[in-house]
Design a protein around this nucleic acid. Structure first.
Length: 604
DNA sequence: ACCATAATAT
DNA sequence: CATATTATGG
């Protein structure tokens, strides 16, 4: 194996990797040194852990990775591991002759990025650079990681290095759980180098999906703006003409992701949405407009992400949010959700309420609460949506997620607990909510037996969001997150839709509208009318000022977004009432653009 | 052996 | 780019 191994020196990156090898057995040291050198690494050896530490301290960045034996006279390998982790934060690979599970576990728990069994094979050494890269990628986060990423790519392609998609897929060793590695026999080596040429399978983690959704929504929003603009240019927002994998990819800004990955996911996403829509349609048709009942079913699937804090953002957000719900049209809202759910078990009715809420009431805290409750509930009931869960359409709120992960991490397996926590976090919530929580938790729990997020990940990387998780985790995460999200955060429409730039104009608008235009809208009656118009396709009489127009559009956008989850009943097309869009030429919406939007946002 | 998802082919 | 098919993993 030796020879073959490096047949490809072409890779630049791994070459020159500075490796510090620590082992009290000189024989092993020699062997390892030789092997590592064959890999074109720059090798430094030492037989004492203490010595190793001092070397590392001397030159903090003189090494890229450390390979240490576990059993050493002067200092326990784990101890060394700890120090390294603490002081220089370098990836450390542990090695020993026995593969006793407990030891491996210990190594991993202490932060080892891998655990090799002696005798060590070239293959294993050949891939250690991946740990370094991985770590750097993590640190670099998305953007910066780019370069590294590319290099990886090159390398991968260039040689058939066992690539092992692990690089990405496996966080750090941690694999313990997933892989059966538990069995000593397998060694972890496999982990690292699956040695396959296959392309790494992308795991659409919640986080990733969230980005995806966000991108989709953004594009949709942009399109809407574009349409509206046709008449008046509201913002200098850049308009995207079409929604497609490529654009989504761009928006997502995830370096390692390929267009194909996105396309594939998009396909699934659309499928999912269509399915849902279908269901909705059926239901709506059968039951008629009253849908409020079923929505839940579909809704469950969606995760709502929402931003947490933003709630406060103001009414606007809420409004929009509500609007979306409103799409449901349910009857009027008056149901004041607040009281409605004494129990928190708001049933579907809640949902309906939600819808109504949309209008002006928004401001009320109570309302909001109720709203949330409703949402929560929606989830609670669901039981089987694991899959669906994956796609939440909610709007993306960056902030939210960061938090979510935390929670998840914290609680890991006990979904219940963590759900509760999340709930607790809610600023306002009554018993009802708790009640709901319980429900959710239950459902969730059943779904996710696996830890939400790999502990490993957590431990290994402090990063809140795991780039890759295994499916199970994934699901669990999504589910749980959804639960959390729902419970925890209110949805914040606006923010999501527009990132930075757009926010300005809009916000301004909002403020202005709030008082004036907004109020107009806010009045329930108006809203309803508005909605109905939308639904019906009637024209919206009002939409007077530019600002207002904008506002409208904005709302619409949200509606759309919301529609993703909430609205199942109504046909999208109806939403896009030309009238709403104001004077925009009809052709715009009817035509491709329009359809595009639909599809993009909702699927159709 | 089945199902769901992502990869790949068309 | 959209859809159909295949591959993979649970």
């Amino acid at each position: 194996m030796d020879n073959g191994c490096f047949s490809s020196p072409r890779r630049d990156f791994p070459a020159g990797l500075r490796v510090l090898v620590v082992d009290d057995d000189p024989t092993w040291l020699k062997i390892l040194e030789k092997m590592l050198k064959k890999c074109n690494y720059e090798v430094t050896t030492c037989c004492l852990a203490r010595h190793a530490l001092s070397l590392l301290r001397e030159r903090k960045d003189g090494y890229d990775i450390v390979i240490s034996d576990v059993n050493m006279p002067d200092m326990d390998g784990f101890k060394l591991l700890e120090h390294v982790g603490l002081e220089m934060d370098l990836p450390v690979i542990m090695m020993s002759v026995d593969g006793e599970t407990s030891r491996v576990m210990k190594g991993v728990q202490h932060g080892a990025c891998d655990y090799l069994l002696k005798p060590i094979r070239m293959k294993e050494l050949r891939n250690i650079w991946q740990h370094v890269l991985r770590k750097r990628i993590h640190e670099a986060k998305e953007f910066e990681s780019f370069e590294s990423f590319e290099s990886i790519h090159l390398m991968r392609n260039g040689s058939e290095l066992s690539d092992d998609g692990n690089l990405f897929a496996v966080e750090d060793v941690t694999s313990t759980k997933k892989r059966k590695d538990a069995d000593n026999k397998h060694d972890d080596k496999e982990c690292l180098d699956p040695s396959s040429t296959k392309k790494a399978r992308v795991v659409w983690s919640v986080d990733l999906h969230q980005k995806f959704v966000k991108a989709v929504n953004q594009i949709g929003f942009d399109n809407i703006l574009y349409l509206s603009r046709t008449q008046k240019i509201v913002t200098n927002h850049i308009c995207l003409a079409e929604v497609g994998p490529k654009k989504i990819l761009d928006l997502m800004n995830v370096p390692w992701l390929t267009r194909e990955n996105v396309a594939s996911h998009l396909q699934k996403y659309r499928l999912y949405l269509s399915r849902i829509q279908k269901e909705n349609d059926q239901r709506s048709s059968s039951s008629g407009l009253k849908h409020s009942d079923f929505p839940l079913k579909d809704m469950r699937s969606f995760g709502f992400q929402n931003s947490v804090n933003n709630q406060q953002q103001n009414d606007v957000a809420i409004d929009s949010y509500n609007h979306s719900d409103g799409s449901l049209q349910l009857q009027n809202v008056e149901t004041k959700s607040h009281e409605a759910d004494p129990k928190g078990i708001v049933s579907q009715s809640t949902i309906a309420k939600k819808g109504r809420i949309l209008t002006g009431n928004i401001a009320d805290t109570n309302m909001r609460e109720s709203l949330r409750v409703g949402l929560n509930q929606t989830f609670a009931p669901l039981e089987s949506e694991e899959n669906h869960a994956v796609f939440d359409c909610s709007m993306p709120t960056p902030y939210t997620w960061t938090e979510v992960p935390h929670m998840q991490l914290k609680e890991e397996h006990k979904s219940i607990v963590h759900l509760e926590d999340s709930f607790n976090q809610l600023p306002l919530h009554g018993k009802q909510q708790q009640h709901i929580q319980v429900d959710q938790s239950q459902s969730v729990a059943s779904i996710s037996s696996a830890p939400l997020i790999t502990e490993e990940e957590v431990a290994a990387c402090k990063e809140p969001k795991p780039l890759f998780a295994d499916y199970k985790n994934d699901y669990a995460n999504s589910v749980s997150s959804i639960g959390n999200a729902v419970g925890t955060f209110p949805i914040q429409p606006g923010s999501l839709i527009m990132n930075g730039q757009s926010s300005e104009p809009i916000s301004t608008t909002n403020s202005g509208l709030k008082t004036q235009g907004y109020n107009n809208l806010s009045s329930i009656s108006d809203l309803e009318i508005y909605q109905s118009n939308l639904l019906l396709g009637g024209e919206v009489a009002s939409a007077p000022s530019l600002d207002e127009d904008l506002h409208f559009y904005w709302l619409q956008g949200e509606c759309y977004n919301n529609m993703n989850f909430s609205l199942q009943n109504i046909g999208m097309s109806e939403y896009y009432d030309p009238g709403l869009i104001s004077e925009a030429p009809t052709h715009l919406y009817d035509s491709a653009d329009y359809s595009v939007i639909d599809q993009g946002l909702f699927i159709a």
